[in-house]
Amino acid sequence: MSATVAVLDYGSGNLRSAVRAVERAGASVSLTSDFEECLAADGLLVPGVGAYAACMAGLRAIRGERLIGRRLAGGRPVLGICVGMQILFERGVEHGVETAGCDEWPGVVERLQAPVVPHMGWNTVEAPTGTRLFEGLEDERFYFVHSYAVRDWVLETNGRTRPPLVTWAEHGGDRFVAAVENGPLTATQFHPEKSGDAGAALLRNWVRSL
């Protein structure tokens, strides 16, 4: 029986391409904003494009931040993509406006310090040892389109819990967080659903983990 994945519909993102990509990865997918349905699914995918503040407003309108927190408290997998990754951090700063995020991880989403912004196109990533998400994909390229990112990873576990696996990428000399694997919570700054065979394989890795 295939894993069930709910793609969270909160008015942000090219949802159809995400749905199709996860279906191709072998999951049974529903596009929904229903709290209970999203809570019950094996996996929850949180997409996101556009402005941080707008995404957070849409998310709060359907109690999305509470949904994510509830799932994670029960050890139930969540995957954030692009701005769907950024909103998992403590806060975002865009055009001088600071917006509170879901605060699952400390850190700030800020403008990339590169000569050319947005960062748009294919790029390699530096995946850490022990990654399950990038298994078999260590030398692949993924598709990015963003002007903002987390440029400093600040979470300190001090040996109390297993430290998250953080994948990095670089654009115009500026390093930023490209993906995080943290128990049930996984996120990518790039778009796996637009990343061809490599993105499809990454989504299969995630769906298999459910």
Rank of each mutant, 00 (worst) to 15 (best):
A27H: 09
L155F: 11
L185P: 11
A73H: 10
V83N: 12
G121R: 02
L44I: 11
L59T: 07
P192Q: 04
L210H: 06
R111M: 12
T32I: 09
A201H: 10
A187R: 04
D42S: 10
L133T: 14
N182K: 02
R160D: 11
Y10W: 03
A21F: 07
L137K: 03
G69A: 14
R76L: 11
M1Q: 15
D34E: 12
G96M: 06
A179H: 05
R91F: 03
T186K: 15
N205K: 09
H171R: 04
L165K: 15
A6M: 02
T99L: 00
V166T: 12
A198S: 15
A198R: 00
L88P: 07
E193F: 07
G199H: 01
R76Y: 00
H191N: 08
V116N: 10
A40R: 10
I62Q: 04
S2D: 11
W168A: 10
V145K: 00
L185Q: 13
R132G: 13
I68S: 08
S30F: 02
S209R: 13
Y148R: 00
R60E: 08
T32G: 03
V166C: 03
S209G: 09
T131V: 04
G101N: 02
Q86L: 02
F176C: 15
M120W: 01
A25Q: 13
E104T: 09
S17R: 10
F144I: 08
